[in-house]
């Protein structure tokens, strides 16, 4: 077993993991942060996207051991109590989610887009940048709208 120390949603955390423990399993099973989901086993669907040191990462394709010393932000770490982060709020306002399963990864990918492309995102950029996130419910149109609106709202 390995001991890892990291910060998750601003809180210091330590844990004992097998070398093969994936970061997503550490978050879900040990920390009980079940907002991060697992939708595939080939790094395609993006339901598991979290932020590591400010960058989006697929938590199913990273060992927990690799996150030793890192700062991890999950969907649980965005809101201020019940007050949603502007990106979360935009998803609610624009019906950017249905079953909610892909949603945490979508929100995280939206934040990563803002980090890299700024607050003024066009449709084509958002659609292209979502190629690592699969949603079966929404047909994406409202997700695209939500991310664009959320990005704008983050400027204010």
């Amino acid at each position: 077993m390995l001991t890892i120390n990291l910060a998750v949603n601003g809180q210091p955390v330590s844990g004992e993991v097998e070398a093969r423990t994936l970061l997503v399993d550490f978050l879900r099973e040990q920390l009980r942060l079940t907002g991060t989901h697992v939708g595939c086993d080939t790094s395609q669907c993006g339901a598991c996207v979290v932020m590591i040191d400010g960058k989006s990462v697929k938590a199913c394709t990273m060992l927990a051991a690799m996150a030793d010393g890192a700062e991890v932000t999950t969907i649980e770490g965005l809101a201020n109590g019940a007050e949603l982060h502007p990106m979360q709020q935009a998803f609610m306002d624009h019906h950017g989610l249905q079953c909610g399963f892909c949603t945490p990864g979508m929100v995280m990918s939206g934040l990563d887009m803002v980090n890299r492309h700024g607050n003024d995102l066009d449709d084509a950029t958002v659609r292209r940048e979502l190629n690592g996130n699969i949603c079966r419910c929404t047909g994406y149109q409202n997700i695209v709208k939500a991310i664009r609106t959320g990005a704008k709202a983050m400027e204010e």
Binding site: R28, E29, R32, L33, T34, G35, T36, H37, V38, T74, I75, E76, A79, A82, L84, Q88, F91, M92, D93, H95, L97, G100, F101, T103, P104, V107
Partner: peptide, 21 residues
Amino acid sequence: VRRKEDQRFLLGKGRYTDDIN
């Protein structure tokens, strides 16, 4: 109307079967 279910999903507080231990 905005959806009642969205708040929990957006907070990561949805409760899907695999979330239960």
